[in-house]
Amino acid sequence: MAEQVALSRTQVCGILREELFQGDAFHQSDTHIFIIMGASGDLAKKKIYPTIWWLFRDGLLPENTFIVGYARSRLTVADIRKQSEPFFKATPEEKLKLEDFFARNSYVAGQYDDAASYQRLNSHMNALHLGSQANRLFYLALPPTVYEAVTKNIHESCMSQIGWNRIIVEKPFGRDLQSSDRLSNHISSLFREDQIYRIDHYLGKEMVQNLMVLRFANRIFGPIWNRDNIACVILTFKEPFGTEGRGGYFDEFGIIRDVMQNHLLQMLCLVAMEKPASTNSDDVRDEKVKVLKCISEVQANNVVLGQYVGNPDGEGEATKGYLDDPTVPRGSTTATFAAVVLYVENERWDGVPFILRCGKALNERKAEVRLQFHDVAGDIFHQQCKRNELVIRVQPNEAVYTKMMTKKPGMFFNPEESELDLTYGNRYKNVKLPDAYERLILDVFCGSQMHFVRSDELREAWRIFTPLLHQIELEKPKPIPYIYGSRGPTEADELMKRVGFQYEGTYKWVNP
């Protein structure tokens, strides 16, 4: 592979701008107003304001973009700056750019259920340069409990009458099928589907988006991507930290609602779906819905739930269990780990287990898709061969690698495990991989909904998990304890083995 010439960040961002501006969906010269509902909250200060700053800094926003914060707290732009700027990672050389960014910011205080507050917000936006005809993007960085009041008031008082209007809704989209349907029906009564952007930030990850290209742009994968060759698929999300004093919020939802029903299920769809007619948003989402419709409700015998306990040999936070978090209700049975087996009941995947695993306070930070292939028929190497695996590593250190057998150097035919490896950090030294939120917010500006969740996708996802969630809430089974920093409950490994996964433990990928 030829040595790549190092590029400056300015040059890299210039390439990104060229890609972005050559499309006809990006209205570079139009006025846009980006409204952050819930501007005083954690999500706004840690993710949304920093993301908008990065896009502005790199010249990736339309030229005439204004940012308006809205929340109940009586704040000023200076207050917003004070709480969000520490997350910007701005350099001293960017000081003038930073001043320009905050000059485009404003803030309006108001209630979430008060019509007069929204009329005041609308008047404020109209007073901005060309504000009355601007395109408006409303980001709901809010708890779902206020979605209905907020969307109703936005629709009645704050819509642009000339430009387009788009609304970005953060997960969780309800707690179960019934609450999700209620919320979807409410929002759909106010906005068209092409105006609604239900954001799952995992769909903005580079390697998640790469799944489609790997599958449908490489001839070698087509013939082997089926039940005849693939023994099982494992989708993993692991965090090495616990709730760390923020367990009160987590306890309301648990690990299945927080990660599995959305992030992991979306990745499953991209692995299992048929080739779409095109890369058009609805063509892709149509195929994802077909996959979900082929999955039956989760069966309790295919589920393992766990909850982390303190590690007596650990240090600091590792010595504390979930129930030691003062914000967690006493005696909570909320799971911090889950392993679930699903089956896609169609011709391509009949009988292939899709194993979804996620948890907190585990032994490493990792998100990946792992396809394990069947054993080689007619073994001539005296059971020395391990199964081939194709691994798409989402985070950290984005990579695609194939675990395969090669001859060990020497005189004899002794096979050993090795890999074919594409590590993004080595291959793409001159490429700026956008943060997931950067990519998705740019998608909203461009009107691309491919990486957002459609209402029928959402409904099918909740259909699969709601009976299990209701059973857990009714019966309150005690989750299996696992030690902070471990791989999780051993019962999860036993479940995976029972459905056909072979864990060798003899080879570990190392970032080159």
Rank of each mutant, 00 (worst) to 15 (best):
K205E: 15
E85L: 09
M207V: 14
Q133M: 14
I230S: 01
F21P: 04
V213L: 05
G41E: 13
Q209Y: 11
V233P: 01
R198L: 04
L137K: 01
N135Q: 03
L235F: 08
T243Y: 09
R166Q: 00
L203R: 13
E156K: 11
R104S: 03
T151N: 10
C232S: 11
W54Y: 13
G14A: 13
E170T: 10
A127V: 09
L7H: 10
L128K: 09
A44Q: 01
P240D: 10
L75H: 06
V146N: 09
H155P: 02
Q119M: 10
M159F: 11
V77A: 08
L16T: 08
D251I: 00
G110W: 02
E244C: 07
G23V: 15
K205A: 14
S106V: 09
I67L: 04
L61F: 07
M207I: 14
D58R: 03
M37C: 15
S84E: 04
F21L: 11
R192T: 08
W54D: 10
N135W: 01
R182A: 08
I220M: 14
Y202A: 12
D251N: 10
R192L: 15
Y139E: 02
R198K: 01
T51W: 14
R81Y: 04
V12R: 10
T243A: 12
I196Y: 00
G38N: 11
I67P: 00
D58A: 03
I255C: 12
E93Q: 12
H129S: 05
Y249H: 14
E18T: 05
G59C: 04
F191A: 00
W225C: 01
T51M: 13
N122I: 05
L130I: 09
N126K: 09
L214G: 02
H129G: 06
Q161T: 09
D181H: 06
Q195R: 02
T76R: 10
Q4N: 07
V146I: 09
A39Q: 00
A2G: 08
P92A: 11
A127D: 09
N122T: 11
G254H: 03
G222T: 06
S73N: 03
K45S: 10
C232M: 06
F101L: 00
A6H: 08
Y70C: 05
E94A: 03
D200L: 13
S73R: 04
V150M: 08
W53E: 01
D200I: 14
V213W: 06
A78L: 08
T243H: 13
G38K: 00
D58T: 09
F56Q: 02
Q11A: 11
A115K: 12
N105F: 08
L140M: 11
L177M: 12
C232L: 03
T151I: 08
E206K: 04
K45I: 09
G59M: 03
A109V: 08
W54H: 08
R219P: 06
K238S: 13
I234Q: 15
Y147Q: 15
R182I: 14
L140Q: 00
F253C: 11
K238V: 14
C13S: 06
V77D: 04
G38P: 03
E19V: 04
L61C: 04
C13A: 06
T76Q: 08
F26G: 07
H155Q: 08
E85A: 06
D58M: 08
F191I: 02
S132V: 11
R136L: 05
V169P: 00
F173C: 02
F173N: 05
D176I: 05
E85N: 03
T10R: 10
H186T: 09
I234S: 15
S117A: 11
P223D: 14
H27M: 11
D100T: 08
R17V: 12
R81H: 03
I35P: 01
S40F: 05
L43T: 07
S188P: 02
G110F: 01
F241I: 13
T145M: 13
I67D: 01
F221H: 04
D181V: 14
S188M: 11
F87W: 11
A44N: 00
Y118S: 01
F250R: 03
E63V: 08
F138E: 01
Q28L: 13
P86D: 08
N64I: 02
N126V: 06
L20I: 04
R120N: 07
E18A: 13
S29G: 12
L75E: 08
L96C: 08
F101P: 00
A115G: 03
T76Y: 05
I67Q: 01
Q4D: 15
G204E: 15
L214H: 13
D251K: 04
R227S: 09
I67M: 06
W53D: 00
I48H: 00
L140E: 00
A134M: 05
F66V: 06
I199M: 07
S132Y: 10
I230L: 06
V233T: 01
E244K: 09
G14C: 08
I35Q: 00
F221V: 15
A71Q: 02
N210Q: 14
L203K: 10
L177F: 07
I167Y: 03
H124P: 00
Y147I: 13
Y139H: 10
P144I: 13
V233W: 01
A39F: 01
A116Q: 10
L43F: 13
L128N: 03
P172E: 03
L130V: 10
T243R: 08
W164H: 06
E63C: 07
I220S: 03
L121Y: 00
L128F: 08
F21M: 10
Q28R: 08
W53Y: 06
A115Q: 13
L235G: 04
S73M: 08
S132G: 04
L16Y: 06
P172C: 07
G242I: 03
R198N: 03
I52A: 11
Y70R: 01
H27E: 10
W225Y: 07
A6D: 10
F34D: 01
V5I: 06
W225A: 01
Y70W: 03
E18I: 09
L98S: 03
K82S: 14
S8A: 04
P86A: 08
T243W: 10
E18L: 08
H201L: 06
E206D: 14
W54N: 15
V169G: 01
V12C: 06
R175L: 08
G23P: 13
F250P: 03
I35N: 03
Q4T: 05
A149C: 11
D228H: 15
F221K: 01
G245T: 07
R104T: 03
D181F: 06
E156G: 10
I162N: 12
I220A: 05
F138Y: 09
V213F: 05
I167L: 12
A39V: 03
W53Q: 00
A141G: 13
Y197F: 07
S123H: 07
S132I: 12
E206C: 13
N64K: 09
F191L: 05
R215D: 01
V213Q: 14
K152W: 11
S157T: 05
D251Q: 06
I168F: 02
L43W: 14
K47G: 06
T65R: 00
V213P: 04
E156C: 11
T91G: 09
Q133A: 08
I199G: 03
D251V: 01
V233G: 02
S184M: 08
S117K: 03
Y202Q: 14
S189I: 08
I162E: 09
E193M: 02
D113M: 06
I234K: 14
F173I: 05
V146A: 05
G14W: 06
R136T: 02
S132E: 12
I35G: 04
T91I: 05
Y147F: 14
P92E: 11
Q22H: 03
F216Y: 13
K46H: 13
L190R: 08
I168Q: 00
Y70D: 01
S117I: 01
R246M: 09
S188F: 06
T151W: 05
I52D: 02
L211T: 07
T65S: 11
R246N: 13
L177G: 08
K205F: 14
Y139G: 01
N229K: 01
D24V: 11
G131F: 03
H129R: 10
I67C: 04
D200Y: 07
